[in-house]
Write a protein that binds this DNA or RNA. Structure first.
Lengths: 252, 252
DNA sequence: CGTGAGGTTGACTCCGTTCAATATGAGTGG
DNA sequence: CCACTCATATTGAACGGAGTCAACCTCACG
C-alpha cells in the first residue's frame, strides 16, 4: 500500500501538530459547525480529537467496529459499503469534503459498514459522547446535526429511487449530475473533474456491472455528452445530462 | 373512500377525547419514549399534539408540505414514497406501529416524500419545535431520537443492498423475512400475517413488477415455502427464507 | 348481474449481464 | 531504457432474468 505522506501513527503529527480547527477550515460552512458563532465554534473545536490521515485503500473503520467517533472529511474522498451474510457487497455512498461519516453507527454503537479512502485523505475525529455533551447547551449545533442526519436519509431515498426505478443510462446520468453539483457547492468546476473511484465502484454503487459503466461512458462520449480520459471527466452537456437524470429526456 | 371510523376533522374526538398518552401506549418500549422514566414520559406526553386518524389511502403528508410534526404510528400501516421530476415513483418504506415518520423533512423543513395510510390508521403528532425544546433537558430522549434516525439510515442502506445486488427471488424473500421479524418484535406471529400493501406496492418497493411478485408468490407456494390466499400469508419455512434472503441458499 | 380494480398466468422481448478476448497503463526490476 | 506483470478498462458476442404485453380470472361493490 502506498504511503505518500507520513504514517498516521506518528503521534507528533497527528495529535499535536495537526490539531483540527473548525474556524480556519475552509469547509466550516458546509460541515458540522455550519451557522455557529465564533464562541460556539471554539467550544466545538475543543472536543475535536485530531486530524487523522487515511491512506488510499485504507479503512477509516470497519463493519462491526465499536462506535466512538463520527468523522468529518477534511481532505479527499471515501466510499462506504455494506456487506451481507452471503458476501454481497453494496457501496452505499461516496463522501467528499465537509461530509460526515459514521452516523449509521449511532443506533447500535457498532459501525454497520466499511469506510475506505479512495485517495490519500484526512478526517476530523469527532468523539460522539463529547459531541452529545455539547448538544444540551448548543441548540444551533444540535439543529444542524439533525439536518445532516436528515439529509443523509433523504440522500439514501434518492438512491433507492435510482436503484429501484431508473434504467442504466438514467442512473449514470444522475450519478454524474450529482457529482457535478457537489463539486459546485465546494467551489470546484462542475464540468471538469476527476473520478476518484474505479469503474467497478461506480458500477457497484449504481447496481450495474463494470462493463455497463464502460459502455455508458463510450456511448455518452460518442453522443458528445462528455469527454473521458481514464478518470478525467469533462461534461459537455450538463443540461441534457440533468434532463436524462430527471427522466424527461433520453440519449437515444 | 371508505370511512369506517369518525372523520378526523371532528375536533372533539381528535383534540380532546383522544389525547395521546405514551405511558399507557403499548408501543412505548419501541417508540420514541423508549427508556424514559415516568417523569420524563409525562413531559413528553404534554407536548404530543393529538392522535390523528388517517383513513386508508389518505395522505398523512405530501411532498413539499411544510414540516411541523413528526408522526409516530399508533395503529395501522403506512407507506412513504418518493417521486422525481420525470414522474417516476419509488416506495421507500412501509411503516408499522411504533415507527417514526417524517424524519427526512428535518433537513429542509419540507417533506421529501408522500406518506399514505395502507389501512385505517392512527398516528401521534409530535410537534418538532417542542420536541427540540425537550432535548436540552432530556438527554435520554435525545439519545433515543438519534438512535431512531440512525436506524432509519441503516434500514435504507439495507434496501440499497437489496435493490443494487439481489435477484428477484432473494429480494422477495428478504421482504418477507423483514416483515416477519418486525411482527415478532410487536408480539404478533412471525409466520401468519396479512400483507397490508398491494402487489403493486410490493413490486415498486422491491424494484420489480407486479407480475414478478405474482410469479414469485406462486413459485414460493409451489416450493412449499408459504401459503397465500389473497393478502393472507403463512410462512412455512422461515429458515429457508432467511437463508435465501442472506444469499446462502436458492429455491431452484 | 354488471363493472372495475386487483391479481394471475403465458408468450415474447429486450436490457443489462456474463463470458471472453484484447487493450491500456502504472509499477517493478533487469 | 525496455520487458514483464498485474490491475483496470474496453469491446464484442451470446445469454437470460425480469419486463412488457395481453388474456383471463376473482372478488367486492353498486
Amino acid at each position: 500500500m502506498s504511503q505518500p505522506f507520513p504514517s498516521s501513527t506518528d503521534p507528533a503529527l497527528t495529535v499535536n501538530a495537526l490539531r483540527a480547527s473548525c474556524s480556519t477550515c475552509s469547509m466550516h460552512q458546509l460541515c458540522l459547525p455550519m451557522g455557529l458563532g465564533e464562541n460556539d465554534m471554539d467550544r466545538l473545536d475543543k472536543i475535536i480529537g485530531r486530524r487523522r490521515k487515511v491512506a488510499r485503500d485504507d479503512y477509516l473503520y470497519r463493519m462491526g467496529d465499536a462506535f466512538t467517533n463520527l468523522y468529518a472529511v477534511r481532505v479527499g474522498h471515501f466510499k462506504t459499503c455494506q456487506i451481507n451474510a452471503g458476501g454481497e457487497q453494496q457501496i452505499t455512498g461516496f463522501q467528499m469534503t465537509g461530509e460526515l461519516l459514521g452516523m449509521d453507527a449511532i443506533s447500535t454503537d457498532r459501525h454497520h459498514c466499511n469506510a475506505v479512502a479512495l485517495e490519500d485523505s484526512e478526517v476530523c475525529e469527532i468523539p460522539f459522547p463529547r459531541l452529545e455533551e455539547l448538544f444540551s447547551t448548543m441548540p444551533t449545533l444540535l439543529r444542524h446535526f439533525h439536518r445532516m442526519m436528515s439529509q443523509e436519509i433523504t440522500r439514501e431515498q434518492s438512491v433507492m429511487l435510482l436503484l429501484g426505478n431508473m434504467r442504466a443510462e438514467q442512473r449514470f446520468a444522475a450519478f454524474l449530475v450529482n457529482l457535478a453539483s457537489r463539486y459546485t457547492t465546494r467551489g470546484y468546476s462542475s464540468t471538469n473533474f476527476q473520478l476518484r473511484m474505479s469503474r467497478e465502484d461506480i458500477g457497484n454503487y449504481l447496481g450495474l456491472t463494470i462493463e455497463s459503466i464502460s459502455r455508458l461512458l463510450s456511448k455518452f462520449k460518442k453522443q458528445g455528452l462528455l469527454k473521458v480520459n481514464n478518470r478525467e471527466i469533462e461534461l459537455l452537456d450538463l443540461t441534457l445530462l440533468k434532463a436524462m437524470a430527471a427522466g424527461t429526456e433520453t440519449c437515444s
